[in-house]
Computed example of a mutant assay.
Amino acid sequence: MRLFLSAIVALPVCVMLSACDGEAVKTVDYYSDHMDEAIHVLKACQSDASTELKQNCRHAREARDAHNKQTAEMDTGARVDWE
C-alpha cells in the first residue's frame, strides 16, 4: 500500500518536471500575431541544434511558413526571412 501511495504522488511530480524546460510553449497563432518574436525564436533554433525539435521552434516555423504562403498568394513581396 505504501508503494502504491508513493507512486501516486511521484508520478504527477515526474510528469510535471519532465514537461517543464523553463520555456512556455507558444502556439502557431501566437507566433503568427508576433512575427518578430517568431523570427527571434527561429534564429535561436538555428544556432542551437538541440532546440530544433522543440515545440516553439516548430510553431514559429509553421507561423513563418504560413505567413510566407499567404504573402506569396497576395504577391506583395513582403516575405519574412529569418536569416
Rank of each mutant, 00 (worst) to 15 (best):
62 E>P: 08
31 Y>C: 05
14 C>N: 06
53 L>W: 10
37 E>Q: 11
52 E>G: 13
56 N>G: 08
21 D>P: 04
30 Y>F: 15
10 A>V: 10
25 V>H: 07
17 L>S: 11
45 C>V: 10
36 D>P: 12
44 A>W: 01
51 T>A: 14
62 E>T: 13
10 A>F: 14
62 E>G: 06
76 T>M: 04
16 M>Q: 11
18 S>D: 12
23 E>P: 05
47 S>N: 10
24 A>Q: 10
21 D>I: 11
78 A>R: 06
45 C>E: 06
41 V>I: 12
77 G>P: 07
7 A>G: 10
49 A>W: 11
29 D>T: 09
80 V>N: 00
23 E>W: 07
62 E>K: 11
83 E>Q: 13
3 L>W: 14
68 N>L: 01
13 V>P: 06
35 M>D: 00
71 T>F: 00
75 D>I: 01
1 M>I: 09
43 K>T: 02
7 A>Q: 06
18 S>W: 14
26 K>I: 04
54 K>D: 12
55 Q>W: 06
68 N>S: 01
21 D>R: 08
38 A>F: 05
28 V>D: 02
36 D>H: 05
72 A>P: 06
38 A>C: 07
36 D>R: 06
70 Q>H: 04
37 E>H: 09
25 V>E: 13
2 R>F: 15
25 V>K: 11
5 L>D: 05
7 A>C: 15
10 A>L: 15
